[in-house]
Amino acid sequence: MLRFIVRRLLQLIPTLGGLSILLFVWLQRLPGGPEYALLPDDATAEQRAALRRSLGLDEPITVQYLAFLRRIVQGDLGTSLGTGRPVTEEFFTRFPATFELGVTAMLIAVSVGVPLGYLAARRRGTVLDFAAVGGSLLGICTPVFFLAFILKVVFAERLGLFPSAFRLSPGMSRTDLTGFVVLDGLRTGEFDVVWDALLHLALPGLALASIPLAVIVRMTRASVLEVLGEDYVRTANAKGLHRNTVRTRHVMRNAMLPVVTAVGLLTGSLFAGAVLTESVFAFPGIGSFVYAATQGRDYPVLTGFILLIATMYVLINLLVDISYSLLDPRVRAQ
C-alpha cells in the first residue's frame, strides 16, 4: 500500500511538469498580456514594452520556463501581478471557501444521486425511471453558468429565499480559526454563522452539484441494474436474507464501487464548474479569483493555481483509489 502511494506521488512529478509546459505555451498564445490588463488604455507602447521587460516576458520562453522551474523547486510560485501578494498565499486563503463549496456540491450530488439512481434501477421502465434518466440528461447538458444564473435570479433575487452573493452576510462577525467558516462555526458554537454560511452555500452548491448529480444518478442506476442480475444477489435472496440486508450488503456494496471512482473524477472536475459558479455568486473562492486572473492576464496566478489544482486533483484521486482498495478486496490483493 505504501509503495502504491509513493509511486502515485512520484507520478505527480512528470504530470505537473508536462502540465506546466502546456500552460506556458498556452499563456504565450493568449491574445493580450499583462501589459494591457495592468496599464491604462492610454499607456504608450514604450511603457508596455518596459512592463514586459520588467516581468521578464521579453525573454525566450525556454528561459522563462527554466526560471520558473528554478523558483518552483524552492516552493515559490511567484507573486500575483494583480494583488502583489504571493500566489501560494492567495491560493490558501481562498481554498477553504472553494473546499466548502465543493464538499457541499458533492454531498448534494451523492446524497440525492445515489438513492435516486437506486430507485430508478429498481423501478426500471416506470415514470420515476424516465424522470431520473431524462432529468440527469438535462443536468449534463445545461451549462453550469446558465444554471447558476437562473438559480440566482429566481431563488435569490425574485423569491429572496437565499442570499445572492458572498460567503457570509455583511456584518456577520465570526471567530476565524482555520478559514473554514462552517467548521469554525461548529467548533466555536457560533451556530448563527453556520446557518448563514449554509444559506450562502445552498445555491452555488446546487449549481455546482448539477453535473456530478446527473452523472452519479446514471452511474448508480447502471451499476445497480448490473449488480441486481449478479448470481451473488440471487444467492443472498436464496438464503432468505431480509430485503435490507440484500440491498445494503450485497447490492449496494458492489454497485457503489464504480460510483466511488466516478466521485473522485467528478470532485476533480468540480474546479472547472467552481470558476463559473463562484463568479456568478461572487463567492470569494479559488474559482472567482482564477476568473479574475484570466481577465487580468495574471500569469503567475494562472500558472500557480492551475498547478496547485492539478495537484489537488491527483491527491483526491489517490484518496479515492485508496478507499476503493479498502472496499474491494480483489484490488487489495494486487
Binding site: 448470481d231 451473488y232 444467492t235 450488503r249
Partner: peptide, 16 residues
C-alpha cells in the same frame, strides 16, 4: 436451500 452452478459468481466478492 439452493446451491448454484458457478461458485465464484455465486459468492459476493467483497464480503468475507
Amino acid at each position: 436451500a439452493m446451491i448454484f452452478q458457478d461458485p465464484l459468481s455465486s459468492l459476493n466478492p467483497v464480503v468475507p
